[in-house]
Design a protein around this nucleic acid. Structure first.
Lengths: 213, 213
DNA sequence: AATTAGTTTAACCAACCGGTTAACAAAGAT
DNA sequence: ATCTTTGTTAACCGGTTGGTTAAACTAATT
């Protein structure tokens, strides 16, 4: 029987080292760019051990991708389904996704890049595997309720979500381009993203408020 | 002498067929994912001919990348440096980038993906080669002037540019994700992007206007 | 001490991939 | 007509890559 989960500490350490190395390298270089030998070297073990623990490159990649996707989407659902009102949720979403993207800049690039290179079947398989399919139902109801009460102007929820994600995540994705043609370094970029934690919710929320002329 | 540009029609056709095939495949699968044999097959020629016209995979890729980047950024400068006022420019930018991204959805993914997998040196080399480095100077002055006149509230130009690009381009980049978890097909997606041609400029411009309480 | 099951490695392999070679066809140039 | 240049191909090459194998090494179990 091959039950890696119940094995002694050392082997757990090996498996974890592999997974950690694979995560780093896959995120950096993508599925095609990553080499199994490179992962093995980074984990400090023999290449054959990769296949002992994770049968193939595809399976190892799948594992890494699923965990990345889970990390990235779990916060989304947590916030969307909390008890807060829409304005608080918007602020939290922006804060969470800017922090997440700045701290792990490779993740959004990785997820988006691989999704665009994969077949749709793979994508749906991924989402069901992660069990982190975003659920907007509560948020959507909140928006409709607020609009009905006249608190905000009516908006299409998917546009709102896309606006938030685009404003928070795009700068990180386009970072190399932005850094180059704005001529800014790492510190200035982080400072700018910190500013956006305030600017983006402000922009979104002000667009929801009913204009008083 | 090897001057492919001045060769007869048939060879031009071959060279163009290669370039067209390479463009399609590189954009779809990325630099690492693309295979020279696949490009040759798609162009309907022998693999050796690829190396005859474009010495190596790297050079072929560079060519494709530069032309993609040029296509993508040339519109940006055209609009930024025109004679229009800032509001017209913002509307034009949104319209242009949504159209461009919807018509060629692979291009933004391609450019951003490859930029994130490349070294900074490569990126600056690319930008100088394309001769399409975005120039915000005029736009920046216009913004300052408008703010000084009290027409708009003062804003940081780079935040504004990032907002516009993020709102227009992100949905296309995240399309497979969005399509899946919103459960929409191709036609609905295009319709949604068409809506955004109106929504995004509205959002941006309203955020610039000085609030009247 | 022998057995057993899990872990780790060196060596190996077939397929693949980017690139080369040499021969050949086509078309001007002389 | 033949010689040179350019376009095109089949076959090949060396290195790399994902993956395998069989044996060695551990560490509990008996």
């Amino acid at each position: 029987m091959v039950k890696a989960e119940q094995s002694p500490e050392q082997s757990m350490a090996a498996e974890e080292r592999i997974l950690k190395a694979a995560t780093t390298i896959f995120r950096e270089k993508g599925r095609e760019g990553a080499r199994m030998q490179e992962i093995a070297d980074a984990a400090g073990i023999n290449k054959a051990l990769l296949h002992y623990y994770f049968r193939s490159k595809d399976l190892l990649f799948e594992r890494v991708f699923i965990e990345s996707a889970r990390l990235f989407f779990s916060r989304l659902n947590e916030i969307l389904q909390s008890e807060r009102d829409i304005f608080q949720k918007i602020t939290q979403l922006c804060d969470a996704y800017i922090s997440l993207s700045v701290e792990n800049p490779f993740i959004p690039v990785f997820i988006i890049g691989e999704m665009n290179h994969s077949q749709d079947i793979f994508i749906s398989k991924m989402f069901t595997a992660t069990q982190t399919r975003p659920d907007f139902s509560i948020f959507r109801e909140q928006l409709q309720a607020a609009a009905a009460e006249g608190m905000i102007r009516p908006v299409a929820p998917h546009h709102l979500i896309m606006n938030i994600l685009g404003l928070c995540i795009f700068p990180v994705i386009a970072k190399p381009m932005m850094q180059f043609n704005m001529g800014i370094g790492e510190k200035e970029f982080i400072a700018m993203m910190e500013e956006r934690k305030r600017l983006v919710p402000e922009l979104i929320i002000s667009s929801l408020k009913i204009e008083k002329k």
